[in-house]
């Protein structure tokens, strides 16, 4: 993607799937100056275990590596620390703590899945409120103030985004899932064959 095509393509590429904060962390479409200052983000051991477990449940080990093997848990922590600010840190921790309080780590596999399905369902409501807040912020003159006060992206949504990003840009994720072609050398439209791996660059 070159920079000139960038603005016209960004929404297409992300298919509207990535939420605004990740877009913002990715794209910095707004004024970085107007945000709350960066803060140190750290997980305790229990929280870290929960994050790793959830990541692995989103992208489990199958015939290819899972999120843990691909280094996703530490990537998530690095990203939260380096690329996100306080409101996102707080909502992320809140989500992890809710899982802890619900006894996530003591549950068996099926129960864990059930709990995460509930979290996913609840997140839809949270996302509605969140998107409304974002659109209000869009036309609000007190944007700077609102940004400090606002809630970050809901935990599940960010967790999923960062797990996908961390996994499908990792060496294990790319090479296991796709045909990695760093130097295509040509450009052509082709018909996909049954069970063919698609290309990554």
């Amino acid at each position: 993607m070159n920079r000139r095509e960038y603005i016209s393509h960004v929404a297409v590429l992300l298919g509207g799937a990535f939420s605004m904060p990740t877009l913002l962390a990715i794209e910095r479409l707004e004024y970085p100056r107007a945000e709350a200052p960066a803060a140190v983000f750290q997980l305790n051991n229990i929280q870290r275990t929960i994050v790793a477990e959830v990541a692995e449940m989103i992208i489990p080990q199958t015939e290819t590596a899972g999120a843990k093997e691909a280094g996703v848990p530490s990537f998530i922590e690095l990203m939260l620390n380096d690329c996100y600010r306080t409101p996102v840190h707080l909502s992320f921790i809140e989500g992890v703590e809710e899982l802890r309080a619900a006894g996530f780590l003591t549950k068996n596999g099926a129960e864990k899945t059930e709990l995460l399905r509930k979290v996913e369902k609840d997140t839809k409501e949270l996302m509605k409120a969140y998107n409304m807040q974002q659109s209000k912020m869009g036309d609000n003159e007190d944007r700077e103030l609102m940004k400090v006060q606002t809630k970050g992206l809901p935990f599940w949504r960010l967790m999923k985004e960062l797990t996908l990003l961390g996994y499908f840009t990792s060496e294990a994720g790319i090479k296991g899932s796709f045909e990695y072609v760093p130097i295509p050398g040509k450009l052509e439209e082709v018909k996909i064959k049954p069970n063919q791996k698609i290309y990554a660059y």
Binding site: A25, D82, C83, T169, A200
Partner: peptide, 14 residues
Amino acid sequence: APWEFAHRGKVPVH
């Protein structure tokens, strides 16, 4: 390669 970028092409806060 993509995995050789710590933040995978994203922009850190600083």
